[in-house]
Every structure is written in C-alpha cells, then in structure tokens.
Design a protein around this nucleic acid. Sequence first.
DNA 1: CATGATTCTTCGTCTTACGAACTATCTGGC
DNA 2: GCCAGATAGTTCGTAAGACGAAGAATCATG
Lengths: 181, 181
Amino acid sequence: MHDRALTSLIALRRILRATESHARLLARETGLSTPQLIVLQIVRHAGEATAKTVASQAGVGQATATALVDKLESRGFVRRQRGDSDRRQIWISLTDTGRAALEAAPDPLHENFTARFEQLPDWEQAMLVAALERIAALLGAAGLDASPVLHVGAIDHPGDHPGDHPGDHPGDHPGDHPGAG
Amino acid sequence: MHDRALTSLIALRRILRATESHARLLARETGLSTPQLIVLQIVRHAGEATAKTVASQAGVGQATATALVDKLESRGFVRRQRGDSDRRQIWISLTDTGRAALEAAPDPLHENFTARFEQLPDWEQAMLVAALERIAALLGAAGLDASPVLHVGAIDHPGDHPGDHPGDHPGDHPGDHPGAG
DNA sequence: CATGATTCTTCGTCTTACGAACTATCTGGC
DNA sequence: GCCAGATAGTTCGTAAGACGAAGAATCATG
C-alpha cells in the first residue's frame, strides 16, 4: 500500500544524496556554489529579476537571496539596478562576466542529467518536470489546498509560476526599468 | 536553452530545500539534525564505528564527522571509547539514550511526504514513482554509488525496500575491535 | 629511540539559511 | 500634504555543516 511511497522515498534519497555530493564537487571546480549557480540561472532565465523573484524561485528566503546576490555582485557576476517606476524593487541582471561564468559553468547537476534529459522524448521530459514540481509542492507547501489535480495543460508551460519567463511580468514593471535599455 | 532541464533543476533544488527545511523543523522537535541522524544511523548499523568510518559513510570529512560526533556525544547519544589494540582509533557507539532517540526520531522525509503521497490518485502515484526512479537513474548512472546512508536511512522498514539491501559495502568495519573490553 | 604514517581533534574560515528588526518606498485614506 | 499600512530589500545576529591545515597521540618500522 505505501509501497509506492517507500519506493519514492528511496529514490528521493538517492536523488538528494547524488545532487548534494555532486554539487560539492562542482563547487570546487567552478568556484560557484550550487545556490549561486541557481541564482545566476534564474537571473539569466528571467532576463532581469527582483530579489523576491530570485528568492521564491530559488526556494530560499529573501535574506538568503540577498546574501547570495551580494556574493555574486561582489564577484561581478550580477549587477543591481534600482527600479525606475517602483524604487523599492531592485532588478538583478547578469553582467558579461556573469554570463561568461554561466556559460563556462557546467550544470549544477550531472552533465549527464541534462544531456540525458534532453534526449528523452518530449512527453517524458514533460512528465519529469511535472513530477518534480509536484514533489516539490508535496514537500514544500504545508498549507497547500488539497487540489489534487495536476492541471495537465500546464505541463507544456513550465512557467506556471509568475515571473518564470522573461515576458511574464509585463504589468509588474512598465518596462522602464534601467536594464532594458 | 534547455528550458525544461532548467525547470527540472529548479524544482530539484526546491525539493532539496524543502527536505532541508523539513529536516530543520524536525530537528527542533527531536533535537537531531539530519546529519546527526545519519551519523546515529551509521553507528547503529555498524554497531561500533570509528570516526573515519563515520566520515566516509556519511560522505563528509573527518573534521565534520568529529564535530557531529561532538554534538551527539555532548547530548549523550553516543559515547567514545578509545580502542584497546590501536589507541589512535576511537570507537563510537550508541548509548541507550541515543538508541531511544533513534527509535523515536521519525524519518525526516517520511512524515510529510508519505502522508501526502498516499492521498494522491493512483495514476499520479505511479507517475511520481516512475519519474523519481527515472531521475535517480539519470543522476546515478554517472557512477555515483548509492550512499550507505541510503539504506541506513531506511531504518523504518529494513526488509521492505527492493534493490537496496545492506551488505553492499561490507568490510568497512573490522569487527575484531575490542569494543567489548 | 628516531622516523614516518595513521587517526582523530582543534582551529580558523566559508557558505548557506533563517528570523527579526530596520530602511525605503508605494498605496490608500483623510 | 500627511499618516498608516503594506511591500521590497537589506542588515544583523545566529546556527549549522563543511572543509583544509595544523597539531597531538599513537602505531609500525628500522
């Protein structure tokens, strides 16, 4: 009965251990820790991102996100630019250095993972993405309203959550923030 | 770039963070952090273990292992006994308190995940299991050995899990040590 | 005993991570 | 205009895990 749960747990453990141990190796090679790398990728993916976006997408608190961005900024990988329309917001964008570092840095997980992942048939990629997000939700959202339905339609749009892809926050900032120009 | 791969990575990261977060909550209740729990499990599994064994099985350096054992010792969960034949070695064993704590401590993942997992519709459970195993395979295929922590971690159901039987890594702890003396 | 290897500990440091408090800013009500 | 509340981000204090380097104790060997 909870055979599947157990199987999932074991697989999950293996995944966790694998990612952790691999991340450590990688951090040594690239000088970038996994969270830092993730922040870089989020920023690149979003084009520009606020600290809040970075925090929520990276799955950490704002304070932690600030610390991460601090480090990245001090190394010249990202820059901060205060928003024009809403001056509370700070838009984080990649510098050329950061972009280069990101290009040079391998994936935070196995290169094999990405390589193999990309070779999977489309439906399976979609399945894995959906499953991972589902699991993240299962583990993460304590107060998740028990909507057991995975909207299958959203599978094709992994940018389920706001701010995931660049053009996703058009009303968020009128586009007059500095980085765009 | 690899949109889905990135999404997977982020989701994976969120899973990691969620797990850590749960572990932290649990740590407050039980007073045991995940690494500490792992050390306890390793020690229990081995009966007695040297610091080196603990370090290598937990996948951390000796210094870290010492720190963890320090914490556990200060809480009375383990004891250190200098080896008789080789007095450089320190044999770490569970105290009754530690054994009790280990019995009482729930699996850091088990609680939330299992409960929610089992509320999912059947097809989704199946999907998640398949996805997790797929991902574990993708990650693990690069020669990452399944950490001993894995099956030590599955203490709740030692005989239940398939394909993850102990005895995969024998010979690490001699057994001729003078612990009884 | 001297030398070198080993085992573990200590020390200093780095990184992540959080909550709480704080500043700055925006928004709404008056 | 101005105050109150909400929001965004930072700073501060704290804690844990993790590592490398250096040190102490011990063993094995010559």
